[in-house]
């Protein structure tokens, strides 16, 4: 690995620590997904994609989280659980809508059982297209969200 790319990795790690004072804690919420996105979110933590090398990790409780990674078109039955989970995240917090369903309602948008995309319920900081998005795309999406966060804290 050359010096330039190694520095980029360092910068990413530094930025995360700078923004949060520690590593990035991500809480995943399935608000109506088909579970395809869950396969890819789980892949993020395997040794091949290894988001932990950037100081990003998936946490068990929204109360420990900095970011909600939401999948699925929000169903009628998940609207309240999603809102309650969001409220349980202590500020400062971010929301990333992952996948076609979370970004737009996807193929399920016209359904009686679907409220709509995540941004019809929560403020969204970044959208990640894909069905499902591959792990590298999710990493890129989280980075885009972090860029926005940097703007917000100025």
């Amino acid at each position: 690995m050359d010096e330039a790319t190694e520095r980029m990795g360092e910068q990413l790690r530094e930025r995360i620590v700078q923004l949060f004072g520690r590593s990035l804690a991500i809480r995943e919420v399935d608000a109506g997904s088909c579970n395809g996105c869950e396969v890819e979110v789980n892949a993020l933590t395997n040794a091949v994609h290894d988001i932990e090398r950037f100081g990003m990790h998936i946490v068990a409780s929204p109360r420990h989280a900095d970011m909600l990674l939401v999948t699925g078109a929000v169903t009628r039955n998940m609207e309240m659980p999603l809102i309650r989970t969001y409220r349980a995240v202590p500020p400062p917090k971010m929301v990333v809508a992952m996948g076609s369903c979370a970004a737009s309602g996807g193929m399920f948008a016209p359904s009686y059982a679907v409220i709509g995309p995540v941004d019809s319920i929560l403020p969204v900081d970044a959208y990640i297209p894909g069905c499902p998005p591959r792990p590298q795309a999710i990493i890129q999406g989280i980075m885009v969200a972090l860029d926005r966060w940097e703007e917000r804290s100025r």
Binding site: A126, Y127, P129, Q136, A137, Q140, V144, A145, R148
Partner: peptide
């Protein structure tokens, strides 16, 4: 292309 994430819905 797979690096498609954006901050705003309209950007998509």
């Amino acid at each position: 292309d797979f690096e498609l994430a954006a901050r705003g819905r309209e950007e998509l």
